[in-house]
Amino acid sequence: MRIGLIGAGAVAPFHVRAAAELAGAELTAVCDIDEASARRAADLAPGARVFTDHRRMIDAHAVDAVIVNTPHALHPPMAVDAAQAGLHVLVEKPMATSVEDCDRIAAACAAAGVALAVGHIQHHLPDKVAAHELIASGELGAVRLIRDNRSTDYRPGTRSPWFFSREVAGGGALFNIGAHCLDRSLWFGGARALEVSASVANRFGSPVETDGIVRLRLENGVGVAIAIVSDPPTRADTLAVVCERGTVEADPRAGTLVRIDGATRMVREPSPDDIQIGFTAQLADFLDVVHGGTPAVPLEHARHVVELILASYRSAQAGAATAVSPIPAATR
């Protein structure tokens, strides 16, 4: 399968190397409005063509599928253009900046008969996979509570300017980093959210939120607490899942650990290759979806993540909890 990468930002090398590692996949084109960035990514895939307009890449018939790795608000038009040209689509998280645009992407791919997957990388990172498999084994019993503690840096100047545009990014730290936290918390919690309560802070003169706290009540009674803090004294990326008979923690730097009745054991040691392992697994999943397989991340799950981010903003503005709509009958 000939793959075109649209967007040559920070994670582009992981996408390129994933294609190089998988049989049956070849990255044949890279597109970015910054030609120098596109060329740097293309240099990692000898022979890949370089474009500065995704429509020209599509019209060149150089690819069979695309990875949409662009600013959030650009996901829908680019994914729809690709689908209408008969190309399979892997779109990075968040799927879009509105629920309506999530539905627009899904409808376009369905109408064109092409595969669609959403790149929620947390489902493929080895530390999270090991934790999820441990819980699925039944050793710890049912999940009761989830605590997700994540640091970031949303000081203006620390990242590309588009991250600070509500129109382009959809929001700030909650839309970018919070999408990861909501994704993995829902995945481990095993149910949709019924209610959201959130608070946000805009610091450093940022036009978008830099910090946020989100609490969820899931349909199955699991409680979730998510904290995203910008520029703290210490870095954090720890998902703690409290179960009936023990607690498991997944952290890309510390690995996956479980504690049962006063005793701790290592489930999986961290590895310097873990991020690449995750991106390669994500692309392998996409190839499987193209060939008729079931995606690791259901489209309704990706849509629900966007729904919850938007509900978090409403809750923070109102200063009260916000109910979440039931799943639409059309997407059941």
Results as ranks from 00 to 15, higher is better:
126 P>W: 04
113 G>V: 10
96 A>E: 02
125 L>T: 01
137 S>A: 08
115 A>H: 05
102 C>S: 05
120 H>R: 00
148 D>E: 10
165 S>Y: 13
140 L>F: 13
91 V>H: 03
162 W>E: 15
120 H>Q: 08
117 A>D: 06
153 D>A: 11
160 S>G: 09
121 I>P: 04
123 H>L: 08
159 R>H: 15
159 R>K: 15
106 A>W: 07
136 A>R: 15
121 I>C: 03
140 L>N: 06
137 S>Y: 11
116 L>C: 02
89 V>D: 00
122 Q>P: 02
134 L>S: 04
145 L>T: 08
93 K>A: 01
108 A>K: 10
87 L>I: 01
123 H>P: 07
105 I>S: 02
137 S>F: 10
83 A>K: 03
154 Y>W: 15
123 H>V: 02
120 H>V: 04
90 L>S: 02
101 D>A: 07
145 L>P: 02
91 V>A: 04
127 D>P: 11
134 L>Y: 10
101 D>I: 06
94 P>E: 01
122 Q>R: 14
106 A>R: 11
99 V>I: 15
109 C>D: 05
101 D>G: 03
108 A>N: 09
126 P>C: 02
94 P>M: 00
111 A>T: 11
133 E>H: 14
155 R>C: 09
150 R>H: 15
133 E>Q: 15
143 V>P: 05
127 D>E: 13
107 A>I: 13
97 T>E: 04
133 E>F: 10
155 R>F: 11
150 R>T: 14
145 L>E: 08
165 S>P: 14
125 L>C: 03
153 D>V: 08
112 A>R: 07
99 V>K: 11
139 E>V: 13
127 D>H: 15
88 H>V: 05
111 A>Y: 01
113 G>K: 10
131 A>I: 13
156 P>G: 12
141 G>A: 00
144 R>N: 05
154 Y>V: 06
92 E>T: 01
140 L>C: 09
139 E>T: 12
98 S>D: 08
121 I>W: 08
106 A>Y: 07
163 F>P: 12
111 A>K: 14
164 F>G: 10
156 P>V: 14
118 V>P: 00
116 L>D: 00
117 A>K: 00
153 D>S: 14
154 Y>I: 06
131 A>V: 14
147 R>H: 05
141 G>Q: 02
163 F>D: 08
90 L>A: 04
141 G>Y: 08
96 A>L: 06
118 V>N: 00
156 P>Y: 15
166 R>L: 13
91 V>S: 04
155 R>D: 09
102 C>N: 06
88 H>G: 04
152 T>V: 14
116 L>S: 00
90 L>K: 00
102 C>W: 11
89 V>N: 00
147 R>S: 04
166 R>F: 14
149 N>H: 05
147 R>V: 09
96 A>M: 07
89 V>M: 02
98 S>I: 10
88 H>P: 04
133 E>A: 15
85 A>G: 01
122 Q>V: 10
138 G>C: 10
108 A>M: 12
164 F>K: 14
95 M>R: 04
137 S>K: 11
157 G>L: 08
137 S>R: 13
124 H>W: 12
152 T>R: 10
96 A>S: 09
122 Q>E: 08
83 A>H: 05
83 A>S: 03
112 A>M: 09
117 A>E: 05
117 A>Y: 00
139 E>N: 04
141 G>F: 06
115 A>W: 09
137 S>H: 13
157 G>T: 12
126 P>E: 00
140 L>V: 11
147 R>D: 03
151 S>I: 12
166 R>S: 14
